[in-house]
Design a binder for these strands. Structure first.
Lengths: 121, 121, 121, 121
DNA sequence: GTGGTCTAGACCACC
DNA sequence: GTGGTCTAGACCACT
């Protein structure tokens, strides 16, 4: 589920963050579900625990997960604040649609793509 | 119009590509419009001309611009092929919507954001 | 009313002290009001009684509560000594105001915030 | 100017953050002023560079400093957003005033303390 | 076992 | 020189 691409110029902790955020947001990790421990994930990905730790720390700061010392890390409850992130997402949403239109997609086709937002990645 | 962020981990030529593609796709550079020359843009951004060259080359391969030897580079006509790029865009579209829904936005709010796809960047 | 945060790096007895002091200072525990016994509070918070004991002992040394052997602990009368604590509070007061000003608040806004010193915690 | 107390239960990077934030907010480090480099401060305080780095990273995320790779870190321009931090500061402000009143200070004395908010720490 | 902090030391890209 | 990332390995408090 979590894939690291060493040719990706983005730092590893960012790639880990993105993967985990997607798992939470997609519902693959429902609220309250336990995430792999820092050490587990580190050995599974053969990445240093500090790097995983940083990903977890920042995901907690962004309210996607909750970490409880001595217990583990868990998918967070859904929250509706986070105006910053919303603005960012709406911006990419608009840009993506603009380019799709430029590539010839009609608004109906775009809407359809959003509806059947069910399958994989 | 073209903004380089040296703290962005992505390579410079990728940032230049994104900026230029956005200009084309948004209509800021309508089809046929002349782009600045590689050398012009390089000096304007104080970036190595090779970096700009690479951005132009790849944008041409992706059909966003057309380069005419001895004349310059121009915004391309709108193309409806590029299935690869379409799939990529639809994928980010779906992921963006999924996270926006997770953050509490209704489908109506998302649709509205797409409609008034007018303001800033 | 007393909230323990196990992720707070401060020792538990400090957190208990702060909570109790706030109750006294806010008037929630008016002078003479009986506090829960050490054992009661310890079981209620599932904390070691020694930890609670230490909080009570130090709060008595600082004149916020009074403990009467065999009878219990009570919110103290208002005291105007405690020059040490006053200096400490005035110091944090000045620093807090300084940062609020830096963040753009005018003296009027700050004064207003102090006036309507009524709502939550 | 930056003092680390190893008996303080708070992590070192937090203490470093607080010290630096105070320097910025107090005007001791005016906007644009260069901060000591990560390595300089690390050796000066005999603290590991990673620990200092973390403090700098988080201060940048909170918009108190700006770090430019290859150039250094600098005190940020004053910004007036940061509603989160404002709320937190106003909360401590109210609590501090409440306890000062309980200790017998009049509103006039408190206001006076805020006015002559000039001297040191 | 868990998350969290810290150290020591390395490497990178950029200036 | 600078900030930034990553590894390796240690220690702590808490469950």
């Amino acid at each position: 589920m979590i894939h690291i691409d060493y040719r990706d110029p983005r730092p590893i902790y960012e790639q880990v963050k993105d993967s985990l955020r997607r798992l939470v947001v997609s519902g693959a990790l429902p609220p309250g579900e336990k995430l792999p421990s820092v050490r587990e994930l580190a050995t599974a990905l053969t990445i240093n625990p500090n790097t995983i730790q940083r990903a977890y720390r920042e995901l907690e700061a962004e309210d996607y997960i909750v970490s409880v010392p001595g217990k583990g890390s868990f998918a967070a409850e859904r929250r509706e604040e986070n105006a910053e992130r919303k603005r960012e997402l709406l911006r990419t949403l608009r840009e993506t649609c603009r380019e799709l239109r430029w590539l010839g997609l009609s608004d109906e086709e775009i809407a359809a793509a959003i509806e059947k937002e069910s399958e994989g990645t």
